[in-house]
């Protein structure tokens, strides 16, 4: 789920975040990034290279296998080795998937929940991080401690009371029930607070002299400055929302609010043997996240994702 499952221990948390923002902050040479290292490669050993290729194949082959399976008709799955000839490939599993479930509805649910919770999480976390980093107000310390404390409690503790509360609110099988618990992210607030604390003050001072109020300064100066942190936290929030399973399993079992992972799990329960269908569903669930990650990882400078110590 969306909640940080890690970063319980203060030192490790500091470690990750400081290193991340160090690398990501502008103007600082990225001293410890992979990029610097690449410029001076040491002589490569053949064995190391072979092992790397094997490891890379081990990462990729299960995905390739699921793609191949999804493009076969169910009967040819019973024959090994599979046929790789283009003539034996078919998209029938994908067509069956669309016919079998209210497929557009489920994809739309997943997209809506993911976009709203990602945007909401990034915006509210950046705001709160800015508030905690730049303002003195009574209770600031207590608020920050409350955020830190919730990072230690696993999400599973909140799930039963949340479920009861949603029943009481009449939100069972609704999209808002999926989104609401994802909005506040203690981890995100922590990340942005650290990031803004390292931001040079001159930029904001100039804006303030020009008569900008704190909100305008945040929106026009601080937020653009925090772009690497936004990319890093945005990916994590996106992944958490798109892949969420446990909470949706509790609260959104009806097709009207069902999201892809839950639909996929139910598919497997009902049609255990139709593996090309199940693999088609897996491909559809996995591909968008991989594409988003592949595109967004360019914006994550060096080790910023390190500060995203959670899964």
């Amino acid at each position: 789920m969306s909640e940080p499952t890690t970063a319980v221990e203060p030192r490790t948390r500091d470690d990750g975040v400081v290193r991340g923002s160090e690398v990501a902050s502008r103007g600082t040479p990225p001293a410890r990034t992979a990029r610097t290292h690449r410029r001076r490669p040491r002589p490569a050993s053949v064995l190391g290279r072979v092992l790397l290729v094997v490891a890379g194949l081990a990462m990729a082959l299960p995905f390739a296998w699921s793609l191949l399976t999804s493009l076969q008709d169910s009967r040819s799955l019973l024959v090994l080795p599979p046929s790789f000839s283009p003539s034996s490939l078919t998209t029938s599993a994908y067509r069956r998937l669309v016919d079998l479930m209210p497929f557009t509805r489920i994809v739309a649910n997943t997209v809506i929940v993911t976009i709203i919770s990602t945007v909401a999480q990034v915006v509210t976390s950046a705001m709160a991080g800015y508030g905690l980093a730049r303002f003195n107000f009574r209770g600031r310390h207590a608020v920050f401690l409350a955020y830190l404390a919730t990072m230690m409690v696993p999400f599973q503790v909140t799930i039963i009371p949340l479920f009861i509360a949603m029943r009481w609110l009449g939100w069972v099988n609704s999209l808002q029930a999926l989104i609401a618990p994802m909005v506040a992210s203690a981890f995100g607030v922590f990340l942005f607070r650290q990031y803004f604390m390292q931001m040079p003050a001159e930029l904001e001072e100039a804006a303030a002299l020009d008569g900008a109020n704190p909100w305008q300064t945040f929106w026009r100066i601080a937020l653009p400055y925090a772009q690497p942190a936004i990319a890093a936290h945005g990916i994590l929030a996106f992944m958490a929302a798109w892949n969420a399973f446990l909470w949706p399993l509790f609260i959104a079992r009806d097709e009207s609010a069902m999201t892809l992972p839950v639909a996929l799990a139910s598919l497997h329960g009902r049609w255990t043997t139709d593996w090309s269908l199940v693999m088609a569903g897996s491909v559809i669930t996995v591909v968008p996240v991989i594409v988003v990650y592949a595109v967004a990882q360019r914006w994550i400078v060096g080790g910023t994702l390190l500060s995203g110590i959670r899964r």
Partner: peptide
């Protein structure tokens, strides 16, 4: 980075189903 992170970013449900099939 993308290659080794493909399993990390993918949904456990999808990945577990792929393994179950394999």
């Amino acid at each position: 980075r993308v290659l080794f992170f493909m399993p990390v970013v993918s949904a456990w449900v999808a990945v577990a189903l792929i393994w179950k099939w394999m």
